[in-house]
Design a binder for these strands. Structure first.
Lengths: 104, 104
DNA sequence: GTGTCGCATCAGCTCTGGCTGATATGACAT
DNA sequence: ATGTCATATCAGCCAGAGCTGATGCGACAC
């Protein structure tokens, strides 16, 4: 079953720049400067998106001097992937059984 | 790797009402009237969302007299679940190896 | 035919959310 | 202490997206 928390998570991931950041962080732990280089986005803009990702629990930070490392939290993505997979399986079963509600 | 098509798909799913509809359709093939009953949303509003889901390829329609059945397309959800799962696996490996880019 | 019902589309309003420049904070170097 | 750099926050602008009422269209019943 999908909760409203999942909706929020999906919404957070549904932004091109944020998804790009997540994609980058999946391969390598980076700090804001690297992300600015990689994405070409302004620092302010990126910082806003990183806050959204942080508050959604998608990433976690590790301060390192005046830099800040951003690391992905795999459990969150795994949870969502699992929920969507379950939903897809249910849908496939429903289709196979052609289970439909009669209209009027 | 996540493409921009995935971004669009995620964005489509990132709406509470649309995700609710997807959730309902996963268990049972329904027509608009049923969805109006189940969600409590206005017919116009729901029809708009259904159009978005249709254009994103998440659902497909089957006319039945003056009714229209909506059915979920499991492959789309499966594809997204798979991509997210892969991303999570990559992130987990990155974390385990503590692979990070040195800052300056 | 007329009426009703299921569904889609249109036009308009509103509000969220992403982008920006400016500014604040805090760490390092000199 | 001064300057520079990395990062976060704030205030404001603007486009996009969701909700609505009104309307159009096609299928069925009579």
């Amino acid at each position: 079953m999908l909760t409203s928390a999942d909706t929020d998570l999906i919404r957070v991931l549904g932004d091109p720049l944020r998804l790009r950041v997540v994609s980058l962080l999946a391969h390598e732990t980076l700090c804001t400067t690297h992300l600015v280089e990689e994405t070409g986005a302004r620092q302010t803009n990126l910082s806003n998106h990183l806050r959204v990702l942080r508050e959604a629990g998608v990433v976690e930070t590790e301060p390192c001097g005046r830099y800040t490392y951003y690391r992905l939290r795999p459990e969150v993505l795994e949870g969502l992937a699992g929920a969507l997979g379950e939903l897809a399986a249910t849908a496939r079963a429903t289709g196979a059984a052609d289970r439909r509600r009669p209209c009027a």
